[in-house]
Design a protein around this nucleic acid. Structure first.
Lengths: 335, 335
DNA sequence: GTGAAAGCGCTAACAT
DNA sequence: ATGTTAGCGCTTTCAC
C-alpha cells in the first residue's frame, strides 16, 4: 500500500506554479524546460517528498516492469549451488540499468504446492527466465498457456516444449572431458552424472558415453548424482565399490567433483596420480579445490546475458531462435 | 513490454457479450455473476489469452505490488551464508499468498557503485526490509529521504537511525553461550566475533564480555571474524597462537564455529574434551557438524515474519515500535 | 517552453 | 445480476 495521501504530480505542479505537463517533464529530465521552472519543480518534489506512481507511469508508457528468474528447485538447493547465484548475478547484470525488477521465484513446483504456477499465472511479471527445468516439470505448459514471454536457460527436456532457450553444448563439453581423460592414459573411466531428468545431466552423460564408445572403452561405470556435493560423494563411493581400480572420473558438476576428490582421498587414492578427475562448471570451487580442478567451462554469465537478450526480444513480440553456446576445457591439476 | 495489442478487458467483454464490469467481476471471482455469464467470460479470456494489466489494476486498487529484501553484502556472501537464505525464505513465507512480489536486492552499496541507492530511490518497490546493515551504511538515510516504508531486520548500528526494526537480543544470546561454557568449567574462554560494525556482531561480543567479567575471567581472548567460515578459521588460528591452552570458545556464527572446530582439530585439540565450542544461529550446519554444535538459536524465520508484519503496517501508515525477540541455547555435543 | 486535454486498462461506486 | 460512469496518476500529443 502506498502511503496514504501520497503527493501526486498534480500537487507538485500546483506547488511549483506550473502545469502537470511541465512537472512531468522535469521529473523525466526532458531538456525543454526553463531553468526557473525546473528549479521550482525540483524544490516542490523535495518538499513534498514526491515519488512517482509507478503503476500510473507504467500504464501509459506500457513499459515492462519486472522479469522473473524461475528456479524449480528447493530454496536450500538454490542457495547452495553456485550455478544459481551465478545465473542470478548474470541476469541482474544483463538487465543492468533497465528500470526493471528481477524477481527470484523458487521452489519445487510439483510437491503438490502450486505456488509457482499460481504466481506465473497471476501475471505478476512481464517475462520469465526458467532455470534448471526437469523432465516432468510442466512449467513450459503453464507458460505457453498464459502466453507469458519466457526463455529457458538450459534446453527444456520435453521435446514438445517449443520454447526459446539458450543452452550450452553439454554433450561437446563432456566429450572434451572424456577425451582429456583418455589422452592422459585413463582406461577405467567412470562418470558421476547429474540428474538424468535434466537436459544438462542427460547430455553430459551422453557426451561421455559417445567418446568412450568411440575409444572402445566400457561405458558402464556410471553412477547418478544430483549436482550436489552430498550426491556426488555418495555416487563416488558406489563407483569405487564397483570398480576400486578406477583411473579416471568425470563428474558433471564441480561440486560433485570436489566431493569425489574427497571420497577418493578417504579411499586412499591420490588425485591425479591414481585417479584423474575432471569437473564441470569452472566455478570458484574449481580453483579453490586441492588439487585445483580440471573442468569444463560453463559460461553461466554469458548464457544469462543471452537469455535476457532473448527474453527482451520475445517481450517485444519478436520471433527468436534457440541459441547454443560452445564451451572449453580448463586444465588444472586434477587431470 | 507487454505483448503488442494485448487484449483488454474491453475485448473480453465484447467477445462474451457482457459489460466490462461483469467481465471484471468474473476475472476477480466476484460471486454475484450468473453462471452463464461467468462461462462466457471465462471462455473469452481463454480464447483471447487475456491477462489483466497489473499496472492498471494497481493504479485503481492502490494495492502494494512488491517489497524489496535489501542485503548490503556481495552476492557471493548472500548466496553462501545460510542466514540470508533463511531470511529470504522467511520473508517469502510471511508474504505468503499476498499478491506481492519479493525482490532480492543485494550488493555492497559503498563500493563507489550506487546501484542499490538508485534502485531504492527509483521507487521500484512499495517497501523494503533491510538485512545485514553495517555501521557506515547510509541506507537508512536514503530510505528516510525517500520516505520508502522500511523495516530493518537487525537493529541498525547508527543511533540516529530512527527506523523500525526487529531484532533478537544478541547480547542475551551470547550471555547464554558464555554462561554455558563457564558452567561447564571452562576458564580460558575465547570468542570469535562477527563484524563489529554490525549490531549483531557487536552485541554478541558484548554479551560475552559482560558474563566473563561478572565471572572474574579475562576478556581479552577476542579475535574478529566476519561470520564466514574462512574468517572464522583464520580468527581461530590467531586465537590458538595467542592462547594454545584455550578451553572454551564462543563463535558468533555457526559457520565460524564449524570452521573453528576444524582448526582445533588441525591443532590436535579435541572438541568438546579439550575445548568446548558454542556457535550461534542454530543453522542446519549445527546439526550436521561433528560434533554437533551447541549453539544459540537465531529465530530467523520468526524475525522475518515479524519484519513483514511490521512493514505491512508501516506501509499502511501505522506507527510501529521496534521489536526484540528473545532467544535460547540448544545444547548438543560441542559444549 | 508550456499548458490543456486525451487517454492508458482497470475497479468500484452507483444505478438499474 | 448487470451496465454506466467516474476516476486512479501519469505521459504525451497538440496547440499555443
Amino acid at each position: 500500500m502506498v502511503a496514504r495521501n501520497a503527493p501526486t504530480l498534480e500537487d507538485v505542479a500546483a506547488r511549483a506554479g506550473v502545469s502537470r505537463a511541465t512537472a512531468s517533464r522535469v521529473v523525466n529530465a526532458d531538456p525543454r524546460v526553463r531553468e526557473a521552472a525546473r528549479l521550482a519543480v525540483s524544490a516542490a518534489v523535495a518538499e513534498l517528498g514526491y515519488r512517482p506512481n509507478r503503476a500510473a507511469r507504467r500504464l501509459v508508457t506500457r513499459a515492462a516492469d519486472s522479469i522473473a528468474v524461475v528456479v524449480p528447485e528447493s530454496d536450500e538447493r538454490v542457495f547452495s549451488d553456485p550455478f544459481f547465484s551465478g545465473t542470478l548475478r548474470g541476469v541482474t547484470g544483463a538487465v543492468g540499468d533497465l528500470p526493471m525488477q528481477v524477481v527470484l521465484v523458487m521452489g519445487k513446483p510439483d510437491d503438490g504446492d502450486r505456488r509457482m504456477e499460481r504466481y506465473l499465472r497471476g501475471g505478476h511479471t512481464d517475462g520469465a527466465i526458467v532455470v534448471s527445468h526437469h523432465q516432468n516439470d510442466t512449467l513450459w505448459r503453464v507458460l505457453a498457456e498464459t502466453r507469458l514471454p519466457s526463455v529457458f536457460l538450459g534446453r527444456p527436456y520435453a521435446e514438445e516444449a517449443r520454447v526459446p532457450y539458450v543452452d550450452v553444448d553439454n554433450c561437446a563439453g563432456a566429450a572434451l572431458a572424456a577425451r582429456h581423460l583418455i589422452a592422459r592414459g585413463c582406461r577405467r573411466i567412470g562418470t558421476v552424472t547429474g540428474p538424468l531428468d535434466m537436459s544438462a545431466g542427460h547430455d553430459r552423460w551422453q557426451g561421455w558415453v559417445r567418446v568412450l564408445e568411440e575409444a572402445g572403452l566400457e561405458t558402464d561405470l556410471v553412477e547418478h548424482g544430483d549436482f550436489t556435493a552430498a550426491g556426488g560423494a555418495e555416487a563416488t563411493r558406489r563407483l569405487l565399490e564397483r570398480c576400486p581400480d578406477l583411473d579416471g572420473l568425470f563428474a558433471a558438476s564441480d561440486q560433485m567433483a570436489v566431493a569425489a576428490i574427497g571420497e577418493l582421498g578417504v579411499a586412499g587414492r591420490r588425485v591425479p596420480d591414481d585417479v584423474a578427475v575432471v569437473g564441470y562448471d569452472d566455478s570458484e570451487a574449481a580453483t579453490m579445490s586441492r588439487p585445483a580442478l580440471t573442468t569444463v567451462v560453463n559460461p553461466i554469465a554469458e548464457m544469462a546475458a543471452r537469455a535476457v537478450d532473448l527474453l527482451l526480444r520475445v517481450m517485444d513480440g519478436e520471433e527468436v531462435q534457440p541459441e547454443t553456446l560452445s564451451t572449453d576445457l580448463v586444465v588444472r591439476e586434477s587431470a
